[in-house]
Every structure is written in C-alpha cells, then in structure tokens.
Amino acid sequence: MNKKSGSYSIERKQARWGLLFTIPCLVFFAVFSFYPIFNALITSFTNKQALSRTSKWIGLDNYIYIFTKENGGFSFWNSLRATIEFTLGTFIPMVVIALILAVFLMQLRSPKGAKFLQLVYYTPAVLSSVVAATIWMILFDPRGLINQMSNLLLNTTGKDFGWLVDNTMLQISTMIVYFWKYIGYFVILFITGLAAIPPTIYEAATVDGSSRWHTFWRITLPLLKPTAVLVSIMAMLQCLKTFSTQYMFAQNGAARQPIDVITMNIYFTGVRYGRLGRASAMSIILFIIMLLLTYLQFTVSKTDDVEY
C-alpha cells in the first residue's frame, strides 16, 4: 500500500513538472493559434470590414455567400479546386520521392557524401518562400533556364512553353517550386525514421537470404510506417496552406485564377479587399478541411506503435 502511494506521489510530481514545462508552449499556442482560430470563428459570423470600426452579426451569411456566389470572379469552389490539384500534385510525389532519396542516402557508403547530399537537399528549405518564388520566376521566364532546357530536351528552337502563361504549366510551375523547396525537409525526416530501425533486423534478414528489394518492402516500409504517416500528414497540411509561391507568381503577372488556392483567396478577400468576415469564413472552412483530412489519414493508416 505504501509502495503504491509512493509511486503515485512520484507520478504526480513528474506530472507537475511536465505541466510546468508545457505551460510556455500552451501559452504560445493559446495566444498565437487558439485565440486567432476562435477570433476567426466569431468574425466569420459578422460583416466585419477591415477599415470600419463596427461590425454586425450576420449569422451564416458569409458561409452561404462563399459557397453560392462568385466572390468577385474568384469563387471559393475554384480555390478548392486549385488547392486540391496543388496538394495532390505536390504532396504525393514529394512523399514518395523523399522516401526514395532517404533510402538512397542511407545506402551510401561514404558518410561525408551522404551528409553533403543531405545539406544540398535541405538548403532550399532554409530560403524564404518569397526568395524561392522570385528565383523560380526568373528561371521560368520565356528566356530563362527552364524554357531553354525544355527546348534543348525536346529538340525545339525558340518555343515558349508558357511556364507562367498556360493554365496547366502554371500549376505545374508552382508544384515544382514547392517540391524543390520542401523535399529536403521531408528527406531528413525519413532519414531520422530509417536511422531508428535497429540494424540487427537487417542483419537477420541478410542471414535469412532476403534480397534488398524484399527487405525494403517487408521490413523497411512497415517499420517506417509511423514516420511515413507523420511525413504524409505534414506534407499534406503544408500543401493545403501553400501561399507565397502562388502569391508571388500572381503578383508578377501570372494569371491568378488557375493558382488561386484557398489561402490566396483568403488573403485577397481579407487583406486586399478588406472583407474580414468573408475571409474568416474561408479560413474556418480550410481549417475544417485540414482537420478532417488529418483525421482521415490517421484512421486509414491505423498508426499503431511499431515495436522492434
């Protein structure tokens, strides 16, 4: 009995310290995440304009508006389409290729070479998104490197592939920028997951005569499942929140409509046109979409703990 109450006391003590250490984080989240979400939710039920000092409670009008009206030619449905296309076109290849690159780096015999390549892959992630988009705008220019390379590869002369003009090419351009910027980050996450798999398991597989291909499918991939789920959720959320690439492209002359992702529509509606109530309603919808997709991904992948 005494022993039990003693362990209870230690647990309580530990819990108290744990709580103490999480307080700064909780305060941070409360101020910078929960409060803005709550505030956006309240604002979404009002007709608040950026410059007006007062606002009126209008119930669900903003939500009805964004699903039924054109919103000045930039409908929410178009933004939903642009966001889904961008997310699917970016996060699936990003997760798959990040995994392939991570496995490749882990297989490298030279640690120096692996470290160097990790650095090379990760460097774009350090760049500001605006700088990255600006660099790529120059590369995608009709006289830029990408168009010249495209001509070289396809054996054409002076063809403008319309990287910033054609609807599909424009979407692909934004995907390429995002892919380039974030692939290194997810490669590092996969490497961390791969490094956590005990080498004894691979040794046992080798002794049993398992081929590399078989080992990858039967051992690496199942044991990497928690990391893969984490990476795919993070990549998906990151893609759903994409903004600066599309914004920079639109600011520099590219058509807005094909790449008018939800965040960009929120920005234009709220900041440029001052319709904070309507923009808040869009934010809440995006928040719900992200929440649902994350839940769905967790449910589908059934993330049981992996034990070695």
């Binding site: 003009v165 409509q257 440029r272 046109y273």
Partner: peptide, 18 residues
C-alpha cells in the same frame, strides 16, 4: 476601386493568357 481593378485584371488575363 481596388476590387474592381482586380476584376478587370482577371478579365484581361483570361483573354490574354487563358
């Protein structure tokens, strides 16, 4: 006026680029 200018921009981009 800012919003209306954006709409004209969209129309011009639509005919020129799309």
């Amino acid at each position: 006026s800012t919003e209306i200018q954006s709409m004209i921009k969209t129309a011009v981009e639509a005919v020129m680029l799309q």
